[in-house]
Write a protein that binds this DNA or RNA. Structure first.
Lengths: 177, 177
DNA sequence: TTTTCCATGTAACTCGTTACATGATTTC
DNA sequence: GAAATCATGTAACGAGTTACATGGAAAA
């Protein structure tokens, strides 16, 4: 799902072909995901079958022809939905959504991240309510709790930043009104 | 690999059957892994084929018989190897190893975690050296860097704790000597 | 008596990777 | 002339999940 979000998000910034998409991901996003060539091509095929992207055969000179994909309106709709889901989800893998957060109004982005934040805070509370274990198990749990605390703190920072941006914009509107 | 480590680690604390293993994992370790029944049974089969565990058919009363697995010496060796690899690895999934950290001498555990720590610190340094991106991409990168910093800090705490335990033990030895 | 628990397993499927094949073009 | 880059694709495989089948026992 997040791989699809990623491809849609990249295609949203301009039509390209599979090779370039894979190349970009490998060069710039290797730290958060890895998408092999075969997978990328297969995924683009699948997305075309779903009507999310349209393909156009382009040949330059005598080179092997490229299949240039571009987002369809249905693809944009799918992107929006996947993005919202990604931003509010708590699983590690759905971090890619952050790369496209600017595609949403700051206010909505803030709400979605707040959902994520609250879900994580709830997980943390569940741990705190549960009885202690011993030895290594306890260490594992402490690690998880530590991570949850960090994540909540980070989200709070980002949410505050989005709120500030929102109110700055509101102030700007007031001034220009 | 980590699933195997997990099963080996649990079997190390006493022979049991697949159902119980799956049940324990689902009840107590759902926050860090999920291992479906079918997967657990298949994995135990595979591990038996590798000679890591031996199986014994046990029937109590008229109940369906259980296949009770117990660790073999080869299984213990595999456990040790997987554990060391897990503790020094940086990928998210290899957190299970922490649950079995007590199986190693505190001194060695400390070294392995220090390896992990250094690898993460290096990843962080690579980010800091790289040029800034803009918008959402930068947010994604900042998130990753934040996580890396948290993780390094946590490992430093745990490492310090292990060092303290080690020197306490050394002091104890001196006193008793 | 119907549901839940104990206990194991199989078959079909999805997702993704690996390894390979193809072939032209640019770079060393 | 060899190697890397551009560009796409297929076939085989592996790991894991889903959904199902099978039964007896205990609990509601």
């Amino acid at each position: 799902m997040n791989r699809e979000l990623l491809l849609l998000g990249l295609l949203r910034q301009g039509a390209t072909h599979g090779y370039q998409l894979h190349d970009f991901i490998e060069r710039n996003l290797a730290f958060c995901t890895d998408l092999k060539k075969a997978t990328a091509y297969a995924l683009l095929d699948k997305m075309q079958a779903k009507g999310w992207v349209s393909a156009e055969e382009v040949r330059e000179g005598a080179r092997p022809p490229k299949r240039v994909y571009r987002l369809t309106p249905a693809g944009e709709a799918a992107f929006q939905q996947l993005l919202r889901r990604s931003l509010s989800a708590t699983d590690e893998e759905s971090d890619v959504g952050l790369a496209f957060i600017d595609a949403l109004p700051a206010d909505e982005a803030r709400q979605l991240l707040a959902q994520r934040r609250d879900a994580l805070a709830q997980q943390l509370a569940a741990f705190q309510a549960a009885p202690q274990h011993q030895g290594g198990y306890q260490l594992l749990i402490e690690h998880q709790m530590y991570r949850l605390r960090c994540e909540v703190a980070w989200l709070d920072k980002v949410i505050a930043r989005l709120r500030a941006r929102h109110s700055r914009r509101a102030a700007g509107h007031k001034r220009t009104a």
